[in-house]
Design a protein around this nucleic acid. Sequence first.
DNA 1: ATGTGCGTTCGAAGCGTTTCGACGAAACGC
DNA 2: GCGTTTCGTCGAAACGCTTCGAACGCACAT
Lengths: 339, 339
Amino acid sequence: MIDVARRANVALSTVSYAINGTRAISAPTRRRIQKAMEELGYEPNAIARGLVSKRTRIIALLFPTPERGMGVTEMEFVTGAAEAALERDHHLVLWPTELRNLRQLDRLTGQGLVDGAVVMEVRLDDERVDLLRQAGLPFSMIGRTSEPGSINYADIDFEQGARDAVAHLTALGHRSIGFLNHSPSAFTVGYGPTVRAADGFRRAAMDAGVEHFERLCGDNVAAGRAAFHELRAMALNLTALVVMNDHAIVGVMDALDEIGWRVPDDFSLVSIGSSTRVSEMMRPRLTTLEPQSSELGRLGVHMLIDELEFRGAEPPAPTQVLLPCRLVEGRSSGPVRQH
Amino acid sequence: MIDVARRANVALSTVSYAINGTRAISAPTRRRIQKAMEELGYEPNAIARGLVSKRTRIIALLFPTPERGMGVTEMEFVTGAAEAALERDHHLVLWPTELRNLRQLDRLTGQGLVDGAVVMEVRLDDERVDLLRQAGLPFSMIGRTSEPGSINYADIDFEQGARDAVAHLTALGHRSIGFLNHSPSAFTVGYGPTVRAADGFRRAAMDAGVEHFERLCGDNVAAGRAAFHELRAMALNLTALVVMNDHAIVGVMDALDEIGWRVPDDFSLVSIGSSTRVSEMMRPRLTTLEPQSSELGRLGVHMLIDELEFRGAEPPAPTQVLLPCRLVEGRSSGPVRQH
DNA sequence: ATGTGCGTTCGAAGCGTTTCGACGAAACGC
DNA sequence: GCGTTTCGTCGAAACGCTTCGAACGCACAT
């Protein structure tokens, strides 16, 4: 920076003002500085900048490391967030913190490396959120707690998604619809999508006046297969299933094969939350309510940076967004079978 | 840090030495400092540390943003890398740089934020690698260029994977085997796995003395379906296919349905590079040569940090690792059909 | 000529660490 | 009992920037 200043015949501080736009700089001076920077290939040192300005322009992405690893949806959160961060001239660091290990998270925030955080896979009651709030670190959420207050969040509207799924099926004439949810453990830890999708399904089915059945189901093929057989035994008129469980749905299709039912002729399936990349791999291609995952990741980052940049001024109104799922019709849903 | 020093009755610098182990500190003094740090909940400021020590303990993960987005395999690289970084007390930032946009990468490295980089999805001839080398930034690769020289890398051994796939099929009695590769564009840009798997397949088939056919194939269902029909028309005895293309393989199965062939009774399929999470979603569950993606991400980070920590001492021998794929038998491969 | 105000620019003081050279005290050999 | 080494500690100087208060020149009004 000294070299740039010397070359442009100005003081060190003038270069700084020119870079940050903190004070007015006359056009000729600015030009000289620009030129000097380019000629020297100068790039301001992010660390030194961060040290004095208290703005590191680094934000953290908090994601839990679940047993089963992450799917396509989560990957899209991450890439979306990373792209958005870069566009807004920020860096995104990954903090894969186990949920129980709050101590680690505490240490990480204490290091003063990041200006804020985006929290992924938020639970209805999430300790990480409490910790961040206490630490005074600005953050936004992908997902939301049961009491989000004035915290910025962007979430998938799984409740509406479930309603849309039911609407899609009732429009096709189905009058007895089941719902296969995530695992019981997801439900008990208060994983929002699990809870809210179930609500949406129930209401939509009641509003439509159709027979409906719900079931939690382990996140694996065998559980899906078993769940289907059970559901069918208790719901004799069942003609369609809404499934929010990418693994279980495979088991369901296996079970359908076993009893010789064809999809969608004899039975319809609608998946909630599968990305097209996954639903395209199924045969038949699944009808799915696809979440806008990448967009969600982007939003989370933008909300956070908006907040960071407004610091000092009066806080802007919290941004709280529910993104609808997009209905992508595959070949797994069709008109109800006529007996 | 001043508070800690005051509380422990030592000089500022003594606290620093105690934290970093840079100089010997007597046991009682160290204890006093430890205690003071805990009582005050003190955590050293990562930014200030980085500024003076020239070691930010931040490393970058470079991944291209391809059109089709990333799959499960890539996600596992990322999470593996993030976990490994955290374990070794480093931060991982995501740099999703478009391949053509080298300018951006140049700027990013110029900021002096990161100590080194892990490059994902390396091509046989990769401009990013040249740029990093010129910038003097230490880095390791997941994948490898055609001339890796003394650069650390960890790569999936797709060549061996292809051989294993052929071995698996010949052991089942197959004597006419096809290979469905990635898209022509992947081949022309010199994407390593595409090129090397083809080599491995060809050699293994020749060594085993079996009839073999190869084909590039667009990364989508329709292309896979078309490719199968074409392949079958020119290879009348074909009884099995090795596929390194998660999307195309779905099309192949559709095509098999169309001609009434069942998997694996009438025709065998082996996938290369599909993670179990994907192959479990296929029906029948695919036999796959699963890459150890998470391990690869971890390795990339460890290699880089090893190198960073050795700076100054003579450079350690380059670590260059090929990780074998793991054969996971599904239900898509079986004994050759007897006519 | 002298004062007033504005738009620009300057010098210097930090930001929270690491690290260098130096120093006091205890331990050693003779 | 005197140099000499070793161990543990200290004060102060960076690291590369931002930002504060002050000062400069210039046009304008007085």
